[in-house]
Each structure stands twice: as C-alpha cells, then as structure tokens.
C-alpha cells in the first residue's frame, strides 16, 4: 500500500520536473529553431549568390531587373542611423547618469528613474511617427534641403528612445562604485565634478561600455522607427539628409510586400536577418563579458 503510493508520488514529481524543464528551456529551443531556419534559408541564398559578392557589391537591387545583391548599402544605412542614435543618446544618457548617481538627492533619484523607464515603455511605432511627423518638419526649419524621409530624424529619435537604456545602465554601474573611492577623492579636496569625472566614471567604465554596446545593438536591431521615417532607398552614402534603407527596414519591406515565397528575392531577407543576428550577437556577447569583468573587480 505504502509502496504503491510512493511510486505514484515519484511519477508526479518526475512529470512536474520535466514540465518545469520544458518551460525554462522553451525560449532556448525557440532561439535554436530561429537560428536553424536562418541558416537553412540563407544557405539557399548563398548557393546562388556568392558570399564575396554579397559582402563587396556596392548595390542592393534584388527587386529590379538588373539584380545586385551587395549588403553594403543596407549596412551603411544601418550604421548611419545607429551612429546618429548613439551620438544623441550617449552624451544625454551619461550626463543623466552622472547627475542621478553623484548629484541627485535620494528623493529625486527615486522619482526620475521610474520616469526614465516609462520612456522605455513607449511603443516604437509611436517614436516612428514622432520622427516622421514632428522631428523631420522641425529639422526642415533649420535644414531646408532635408528630404521627407532621412537618416537624421530617425537616428535622433532612435537616440531618444535608447537614452533611458544608457542612463539607467550607466547609473547602475556608477552607483555600484564603492563609496570609499568617492571618500578618497573628496578627502584630497576634489569637487563633486572632479570626483565624478576622474574617479567614479573611470571606475565604472567597463559597466558604462557595456551599456554603450547594448545601446548600439539595440539601435542596430531597431525596426519600426527606421521603417517609418528613414526611407526605402538602399544607398551607399553617409549623407544623413537623404532617404536611405536599413537592413531591418528592408526586411519589413519584403515581408509585407508581394514578393513570392521561395524565390531568391524572398530569400534575401534571411541573408539580411543572418547578418543582423551575427552583428547583435557579437555585440551582446562583448557587452556581457565586459559586465562580468566589472562585477569581478568590485565585489
């Protein structure tokens, strides 16, 4: 009698355990599946277009009669918007972080931080329209020649979008710098600014770099804003005032368009997806490693 019950109990435990296992590994399985699909489909693509061609051709015209499959114009678009975004987000994000960590009273800090996180909760499609219908017209007041779709306004808005990320992560890194370093700085007669810039900031540098890299990878992967406001013209240019196209925006264009499934044109998005995945993957690993190194130093 007792034995039988125990067997039943054991069975129940095993079932529960495997369910828990499946749940926790679900996202890993899904990721593996996605990577597999990416690999298979881009394999199909690269059988017809050589990798060398893909990486060096300076034109991207898969939908035209004269087909070119050079990723460079799309990469260029992605890097251009990312660069503008980072240029916007890093100074403002870092200054906010320095203020919150070194200057703000506890009350200000506890009020401002949640607000920053609310900024992170605005849907990106809203940012996209904000760029197209507010920032671009505003920029036109200053730069009359700017196109309706351009890298500048979408880059700036993308920067605004990632400010909370930069500010919050950098603030965490600076806040984690031990108090006794600040005391050391003050004890030799540093002002707050000197202590913040020359002692706390360098001590938190690897954490701040990790924040920076995460911001870059977020900007590279950002889709909605650039799809709405940056244009759909793959162009190998560094001019931020004309329409361009990013990798993500191209994927949206094909996914929503009427390109027949299974064709070479359709497969281009998997090659693009693979490129994006590799870019952000490498960046995230890098940031993760830096973050870990940072934790090792001050524990």
């Amino acid at each position: 009698m007792i034995k039988k019950k125990r067997k039943l109990l054991n069975l129940k435990e095993t079932v529960i355990e495997s369910l828990l296992f499946l749940c926790s590994f679900f996202s890993i399985f899904v990721t593996a599946g996605i990577v597999l699909v990416l690999l298979v489909e881009s394999w199909g693509f690269f059988k017809e277009v050589s990798i060398l061609n893909f990486l060096t051709d300076r034109q991207w015209t898969p939908l035209f009669i004269n087909k070119h499959f050079g990723i460079l114009p799309l990469l260029c678009g992605t890097f251009l918007t990312t660069f503008i975004a980072v240029l916007t987000a890093i100074p403002i994000g870092l200054i906010s972080a320095i203020y919150l960590s070194e200057y703000a009273s506890l009350r200000v800090r506890n009020t401002v931080k949640p607000f920053l996180e609310i900024l992170a909760a605005v849907p990106t499609v809203v940012y996209g329209y904000f760029a197209l219908l507010f920032i671009t017209p505003l920029l036109r007041q200053v730069i009359p020649g700017i196109s309706g779709f351009n890298a500048l306004s979408s880059g700036i808005v993308m920067g605004i979008m990632i400010i909370p990320l930069v500010a919050s992560l950098s603030e965490d890194a600076m806040h984690a710098v031990p108090m006794n370093l600040r005391e050391g700085a003050y004890a030799v007669g540093s002002s707050r600014m000197q202590s913040a810039l020359h002692v706390v900031f360098p001590a938190a540098l690897s954490g701040i770099t990790a924040a920076f890299i995460l911001a870059v990878s977020r900007a590279i992967g950002e889709t909605m804003i650039v799809a709405i406001a940056a244009g759909q013209q793959p162009k190998l240019t560094l001019n931020p005032l004309v329409p361009i196209e990013t990798i993500t925006a191209y994927i949206v264009q094909i996914s929503l368009g009427d390109t027949p499934h299974g064709t070479l044109e359709y497969r281009t998005i998997f090659a693009c997806g693979m490129t994006l995945f590799l870019l952000t993957f490498v960046l995230n690993i890098f940031s993760f490693k830096l973050k870990r190194r940072f934790q090792e130093v001050y524990e």
């Binding site: 370093l181 050391g184 030799v188 007669g189």
Partner: peptide, 18 residues
C-alpha cells in the same frame, strides 16, 4: 574643498583610485 586639502584623511580600507 580647501578644508579637506588642509585636513587630509587615510581610511580604514585602502582606497587607491583605479
């Protein structure tokens, strides 16, 4: 700031800057 320059301090735990 001037006060702390004239009255220096060495702490319990060594705290060299990184």
């Amino acid at each position: 700031v001037e006060l702390r320059r004239r009255v220096g301090m060495v702490f319990q735990k060594p705290n060299p800057f990184p």
